[in-house]
Structures are given as structure tokens and as C-alpha cells.
């Protein structure tokens, strides 16, 4: 039986944090020096670390960075196009989730990041460039409503609404808090059957990667 692993995502209405920078790569979201952990917890405090503090000093927050601006809060991040490019580090999604973000809105997402976000219950919402630019011109009080079941995002101050795309399977997962592993595990028989006929062009017994005994 599939059991929820993450908090289900249904309707979210909240203020948002605008970050009008394009090509935000995962090295900015979470710099490499914070990837030494062996658990998933606690990455939020290092989210956008090098944009948040001067010389990595927590007592010297950079005033012009939006996360340091008390006027802006909320569980939705709105960022410029090509968000999450670069390294595949899932730590970027963990950092966003740990900081409290439940959705990221942009006009374009990098592929690996999109998967990582979805696998951690953070919804990537792709909107038109025009809608995105509109969001960057609102005041800090503006709120967004993201309704996953009907796939709409609404800027509540103006009533403007857009439909967004999401894979139907991924949508079901998010609505219920499921993840892929349970689904894949349920296919065990299919996988075993597949392995029987799968070939590498040469003898089956030899198709496996090196085992310990092959060490020089």
C-alpha cells in the first residue's frame, strides 16, 4: 500500500518572495561547502548563503538581498527564468523546503531541479514571462493562490490567472504526498521479467559490473 511520505499539496495562498534574477544555479541556492552533511536536515539556514551574508558572516546580512528584507515573507519563491540550472544537487531542493518554501514560480526551470523539487514536495510552477514580470512589480503584500488540482496560479490583487502544466502522475503524487519509490517497488515482477530478456549484445553472465573479486 502506498503511504504518504511528504505533506500533500493542495491549495496554497500566501505572500511571495520575489527574486528577479535569471539563471539562478544550484551553486547559489546552496554552495558546495554545505554539501558535507549526510542527512537532509538543516540546509535552510544556508539557502542562498553567499547572497545573504557579507563574507559568510551571519552577523552581517546584506540588506539588499530579499530574504533579509522583513517586508517580504511567504512560502512561495518567485524567481527569474532558468531557475535551478547547473549541479544536480538535491540539497538545493532540501534547502528550499527546509527554509519553508512549498512552491517556486518561474518562467523556466532546469530539468534535474524540477524533478528534485517534485520529489521533495516543492511545486515548480512554470508561468509565462509576462506573468512573471508582473509578479516582480507588485508590492510585498500581494498574494498568490496556487491550486494544484485545477493547475492554476492567481495573482489575487489583480485577479490575473494562468494555467500551468504538470505531469499527471507527478500531480497525483504531490496531491497525496506519494513518491516514486513505492510505485517502482510495486513493479518488481515487471522488472524481473524485463531483466530476463534484456541484453547487452553479449553473454548474460558477463554483463554485470565488476565485483570485488575483480580487484587487482
Amino acid at each position: 500500500m502506498i503511504k504518504p511520505v511528504a505533506q500533500p499539496f493542495t491549495i496554497l495562498t500566501d505572500t511571495y518572495i520575489p527574486l528577479p534574477v535569471e539563471n539562478i544555479d544550484t551553486d547559489q541556492i546552496i554552495p558546495a561547502r554545505f554539501l558535507k552533511a549526510t542527512s537532509k536536515e538543516g540546509f535552510g539556514k544556508n539557502l542562498f548563503r553567499d547572497w545573504r551574508y557579507e563574507n559568510d558572516d551571519e552577523s552581517r546580512p546584506l540588506a539588499d538581498f530579499v530574504l533579509n528584507n522583513p517586508a517580504y515573507k511567504g512560502s512561495i519563491l518567485v524567481a527569474g527564468k532558468n531557475f535551478g540550472c547547473g549541479s544536480s544537487r538535491e540539497h538545493a531542493a532540501w534547502a528550499l523546503a527546509d527554509y519553508g518554501f512549498r512552491a517556486v514560480v518561474s518562467s523556466f526551470f532546469a530539468d534535474i531541479f524540477k524533478n528534485n523539487a517534485l520529489n521533495n514536495g516543492v511545486l515548480p510552477v512554470t508561468v509565462s514571462e509576462q506573468f512573471l514580470q508582473k509578479l516582480f512589480t507588485q508590492t510585498a503584500e500581494a498574494t498568490l493562490t496556487i491550486d494544484l488540482s485545477v493547475q492554476t496560479i492567481t495573482l489575487n490583487t489583480t485577479g490575473e490567472q494562468e494555467h500551468f502544466e504538470i505531469n499527471a502522475y507527478k500531480k497525483t503524487c504531490l496531491l497525496n504526498g506519494y513518491d516514486d519509490i513505492d510505485f517502482l517497488l510495486s513493479l518488481k515482477e515487471d522488472i524481473l521479467q524485463f531483466e530476463k530478456k534484456h541484453s547487452y549484445g553479449y553473454e548474460k553472465e558477463n554483463h554485470l559490473a565488476p565485483r570485488r573479486r575483480d580487484w587487482p
Binding site: N119, N120, I191
Partner: peptide, 20 residues
């Protein structure tokens, strides 16, 4: 192709991934 850690877990568990 590169994958995230959740996907590493999927491959370890099932040798498969769900992909578009």
C-alpha cells in the same frame, strides 16, 4: 544523465527510474 538523491535511492532500490 545526472539525477538527484531521491532518484539515486530509486535506482538502488529498483534499478529503475520513472522518466519522461
Amino acid at each position: 544523465f545526472g539525477i538527484g538523491t531521491s532518484e539515486v535511492e530509486m535506482v538502488l532500490a529498483t534499478q529503475c527510474l520513472l522518466q519522461a
